[in-house]
């Protein structure tokens, strides 16, 4: 266990605990919702840490995909039918 932790540290130059601390703040980072100093700290971490770099890029990708999901609109006929159903249910002719 000790050897494995040391090996990870050797590859990344920092402990995994630091990565986890970063991961907990990534949504706030992506939304520009952190103080400039904290953003800078995360940016500095991402460069030399390929794991966190890939993680943040996949999270950013997830948010981008969500933002671009398109939905088909209601047709005029469906809109009129829904309106009639609502008014009927409300007791209006």
């Amino acid at each position: 266990m000790k050897t494995s932790r040391t090996a990870t540290q050797a590859r990344h130059g920092h402990s995994k605990t630091h990565c986890l601390k970063i991961l907990r703040r990534l949504s706030a980072y992506l939304d520009n919702d952190l103080a400039p100093g904290v953003c800078e700290e995360i940016r500095k971490h991402l460069g030399p840490c390929p794991n966190c770099e890939v993680f943040v890029s996949s999270l950013r990708r997830t948010v981008d995909l969500c933002r671009h999901v398109d939905t088909p609109p209601l047709t005029s006929t469906a809109k009129a039918r829904l309106r009639s159903q609502i008014l009927r249910a409300a007791g209006r002719p």
């Binding site: 390929p50 890939v54 996949s58 981008d64 995909l65």
Partner: peptide, 30 residues
């Protein structure tokens, strides 16, 4: 959701490299 291994850190979203619109044109990803 916190990865416990390097492999888990490195999991990627399919269709990396495409724009979101291009990626979402794929029915399976959508």
């Amino acid at each position: 959701f916190i990865p416990t291994s390097e492999g888990e850190f490195r999991l990627q979203i399919p269709a990396e490299g495409l724009t979101p619109e291009e990626a979402l044109a794929n029915k399976e990803l959508r």
